[in-house]
Design a protein around this nucleic acid. Structure first.
Lengths: 223, 223
DNA sequence: TTTTAAAGTTAGATGAGTCTAACATTTAAA
DNA sequence: TTTAAATGTTAGACTCATCTAACTTTAAAA
């Protein structure tokens, strides 16, 4: 089965998505970061990067980092749009839980059909955020993102409404479900432990819960 | 009926689906029929058949035809179930036309998620037929199919209610749409031309329309 | 029944995406 | 500032799904 013009293979799409998300953290992406994220070896990434560079999706020079081009960003945002629309659709229309939609969306994001995604977009009322509070790029790849602050960065004694979590894997969301944490909840930061960065928060249900740094930096409040 | 363990690649799934549908016509499938259907050359089919035979999905001996095993049939029915559920979902829930769902379903049928398909099945009320009137296999691969008669086989002067069309490609369905033919319509066969097998029918809208043999043998009435 | 056409098979090549082993460069430590 | 560790690259091999070219078997025609 052939792929459409312009768009790459499934594998290429996965590289593009990963490069994009890593580049949000650091700007430049290294070959080893990418290899780790995609669960392949360094030479595999190396050869694929050359191919993507030839296609002008990334810019790259040996031993220098990998940088996305505008073309690459557009493709990445198109895939992310599809992924997030799919997740919201699975939750809102199909009644699945926010913790179980990631793996399905990971497959649906590769479906090639304007019609399919436009209908989803319409049915959901051209939504701005996915079930995890992450912004959904519009058809032109534009993201309307709000200012936000990681729980790990909140000042002691302050409160905030949870607006997003930046990880949609089941294990992470099961963890949040177990602690009764959801998008929209008002939480208060009671204490931060300086030696390990863990935080003690007071949840909506007035319960105290400890979050490790890795968890707290992936939960965001409006700011 | 599992999707995960022994399930093959996307390519294998497409072979299995094609072998199954060809075998419904003839029982035994030839290498060249399959090559034509999948749009690949003979040696490509030859080598893939060996692989599928090794996996006990088909039985095969050189120069003899290809025959599906029970295991192969089960896999085929699982894929067909997903394809038809997807088509009905796209029409009923997402409001797409019956002529535009095939290509999307062709992609969705490869989604691996029991959860996804069970929800679709539930939302649709465990449906028995897809938008083209074709039966949807249940989770165990069982098909509840009604007796039916091809329009090409109807006796002159008899009437029947259209129960299915056995081709879901856009070009074919656009053709039927243009003639105003839909599932559930009552039609009457006025005349059959013996030299080319074409038929003249009277549609629901009381209009006379000519159908070629190729079209008439793909439209079915209840019997 | 012999010959020819059609269908099927084998052998070997290709491109995509992956790997391991060996080598090169950059960065961090001693 | 030299050396060791980490990171990146090249070369060559493997699997999957495909191809073309050449050969074999079966079926159809003369």
């Amino acid at each position: 089965m052939t792929n459409f013009e312009g768009m790459g293979s499934l594998t290429e799409e996965n590289y593009i998505k990963s490069i994009y998300s890593l580049s949000l953290e650091a700007g430049e992406v290294t070959v080893s970061e990418l290899a780790k994220k995609l669960n392949v070896k360094l030479p595999t990434v190396n050869s694929m990067i050359k191919k993507l560079a030839a296609k002008k999706v990334v810019s790259y020079a040996p031993y220098q980092g990998i940088k996305m081009t505008e073309k690459g960003k557009k493709e990445a945002l198109s895939i992310i749009r599809k992924h997030r629309l799919a997740e919201l659709f699975l939750v809102k229309v199909m009644g699945l839980g926010w913790e179980e939609v990631h793996d399905i969306a990971e497959q649906l994001e590769h479906v090639e059909s304007e019609r399919f995604y436009n209908r989803i977009d319409e049915m959901l009322g051209k939504p701005k955020v996915d079930p995890h509070g992450e912004p959904i790029p519009d058809v032109n790849g534009k993201i309307h993102s709000k200012n936000r602050l990681a729980v790990s960065q909140m000042k002691e004694g302050t409160s905030g409404k949870i607006s997003a979590v930046s990880n949609d894997e089941k294990s992470f969301l099961d963890h949040l479900n177990a602690k009764g944490i959801q998008i929209g909840d008002l939480i208060t930061l009671k204490k931060r432990e300086s030696f390990d960065g863990s935080v003690l928060i007071i949840t909506k249900a007035k319960k105290e819960t400890m979050l490790t740094h890795q968890v707290a930096e992936r939960i965001w409040v409006e700011s």
